[in-house]
């Protein structure tokens, strides 16, 4: 993935002579649309590694009368993969939902690109973060390619300054890295669960937002594609994006995350690099299941397995 935030379109910056007419028709179109809706949203400035792109500061979330998150603080920085792990019901997806502005917080504040999330409009947020939901649904029989192309919608009102920003390039690239190009013309509904999950991921990648939030992207995938998805996450982080990913597989988290936040009963139990966070006492306690953590005999990578029988 070559989509560092720096390559995104920047209206107002110097443009090649050839793109000038394109720009002016684009702004004219923006003006016309501006009369009907709000004006075109401004894309984010390029982030530098280490910038906090999304953070939750001491947030509390209630669903009904139950407090699902209590005083949770977490931050995702440009250039790193942050994994959210924890047992079922610990609040991982709720936390992701709060970070994605799907759920209102009952205390504390969520900031995206430094601004409280409710101050952004929906079109502005769409240029700043992409979200992969846990399950992908589709109410009409669109084809795979049409679904992936929907990821380009936030950029519809932005002038294309650079060739590599074009919708076609972004869509083709996203489909190639998720290995869905082969069934581009098939209806989404005709795909298997794992194929749908990859198409949904392709749509999210095509959005080319500097902040990615993925809710269990590997749940429906086979071994090869689990690895592939997390390699994509890491590549995006290396290219300067921030990636927040909910994972169940601790081995994947240990292998690919730069930082891991372990949740337990709506609180952060531990937060830090996987090597520091994944230790037997903590994991055994959090998951209420004895766990063994040991280095891979050949590579030295962290391996995590439940203690069985013996």
């Amino acid at each position: 993935m070559s989509s560092t935030p720096g390559t995104k379109s920047k209206p107002g910056t110097k443009s090649k002579p050839g793109t000038k007419s394109k720009l002016s028709t684009g702004s004219l179109r923006g003006l016309l649309r501006g009369r009907l809706g709000s004006g075109a949203p401004t894309p984010p400035p390029p982030a530098t590694a280490g910038d906090v792109l999304v953070e939750a500061a001491d947030i509390t979330v209630r669903l009904g009368s139950r407090e699902v998150l209590r005083g949770v603080s977490v931050a995702a920085r440009a250039g790193e993969v942050l994994a959210l792990v924890g047992p079922n019901g610990a609040g991982k997806s709720t936390l992701l939902g709060a970070l994605a502005a799907d759920l209102p917080v009952d205390g504390g504040v969520v900031r995206v690109h430094g601004r409280p999330v409710e101050e952004w409009s929906a079109p502005e947020l769409a240029l700043r973060r992409a979200v992969l939901p846990q399950s992908a649904a589709l109410s009409f029989p669109f084809t795979v390619e049409e679904v992936v192309r929907m990821g380009r919608a936030p950029w519809a009102r932005q002038p294309e300054v650079y060739e590599e920003d074009s919708d076609d390039t972004a869509v083709a690239e996203a489909m190639a890295v998720t290995e869905v190009t082969g069934f581009a013309a098939r209806p989404f509904a005709a795909l298997s669960g794992g194929e749908r999950a990859r198409v949904a991921l392709a749509r999210v990648l095509a959005q080319r937002a500097p902040l990615l939030m993925l809710d269990e992207p590997t749940a429906a995938l086979d071994l090869r594609h689990q690895e592939l998805v997390l390699r994509v996450c890491r590549a995006r982080a290396r290219a300067g994006d921030a990636v927040v990913v909910v994972l169940h597989d601790l081995g994947l988290a240990a292998a690919y995350a730069d930082r891991v936040a372990v949740l337990r009963n709506g609180r952060i139990a531990a937060d830090g690099p996987p090597a520091g966070v994944f230790e037997e006492g903590l994991l055994s306690d959090v998951y209420r299941q004895p766990v063994e953590v040991f280095p891979h005999p050949r590579t030295g990578d962290v391996l995590i397995t439940p203690k069985r029988g013996s």
Binding site: A122, A126, R129, A137, L138, M150, Q207
Partner: peptide, 12 residues
């Protein structure tokens, strides 16, 4: 068609 939340994520 993607659902309410994904539509919102895409700026609707």
């Amino acid at each position: 068609a993607l659902g309410e939340r994904p539509a919102r994520h895409l700026g609707v």
